[in-house]
């Protein structure tokens, strides 16, 4: 009973927060609302006993991705006036589309409910194994290739995002390493015969 109360409280917070993401005019409010949605999702994942992923969600998304979003929003300096336009014309179609998708999915789940009848919530807490250990064991044995590919994708993301946003100004006196390495010492020192003066 307590579990259901917690679930419904967090579910309503999650729905309100995700509605706030699409309804706020100011993108900063949308980003903060999305942060609330992520934290609430983490709480709901704790109910489903996915403790490691819940913590990872809060750390990675709230700590890194949403901070990046907020930085970009504040860096771009969007004017408030031009945001008002273009919200009304397509809104009925969009709301209709969303309602149709939600109705289809929910009807599918509840009409076919006998498909789910065998699945029950079994708590792992009596088994005295922790979620992180199980997840790590699977990840480092069975899915090791995918894990390394994921690391490579992250490296790729670093390189791509730096190279996209890197901007080099002109007339900056900085070192160019390739020119320095390619320099030939024979061209740098020139021996000049100086006629000896004096007697």
């Amino acid at each position: 009973m307590l579990l259901e109360i917690i679930f419904y409280i967090f579910a309503s917070i999650l729905i309100c927060a995700s509605l706030g993401v699409i309804l706020f005019k100011n993108p900063v409010y949308s980003a903060v609302s999305l942060i609330l949605a992520f934290i609430t999702t983490g709480m709901l994942w704790l109910l489903l006993e996915a403790e490691f992923l819940a913590i990872v969600l809060v750390l990675v998304y709230v700590g890194a991705v949403m901070v990046l979003f907020l930085f970009v929003i504040m860096m771009l300096n969007i004017h408030q006036e031009e945001e008002k336009s273009g919200f009304t014309k397509i809104a009925p179609i969009a709301i209709f589309l969303g309602l149709v998708i939600a109705a289809e999915l929910i009807a599918l789940y509840w009409i076919q409910s006998d498909q789910f009848s065998g699945l029950e919530s079994i708590s792992n807490s009596s088994l005295s194994v922790d979620n992180t250990l199980l997840l790590g064991t699977e990840l480092f044995t069975k899915y090791i290739l995918s894990f390394e590919i994921a690391g490579f994708i992250l490296l790729l993301a670093i390189i791509v995002s730096i190279s996209l946003t890197l901007r080099t100004r002109k007339n900056v006196k900085k070192q160019i390493a390739s020119d320095q390495i390619a320099a030939d010492p024979k061209q740098r020192v020139r021996m000049v015969d100086i006629k000896r003066g004096g007697n």
Binding site: I15, I22, G98, L105, W110
Partner: peptide
């Protein structure tokens, strides 16, 4: 059902 509601909000 909760997940479907969040999904349709995202599509909207």
């Amino acid at each position: 059902t909760l997940s479907a509601i969040i999904f349709s909000i995202g599509i909207t």
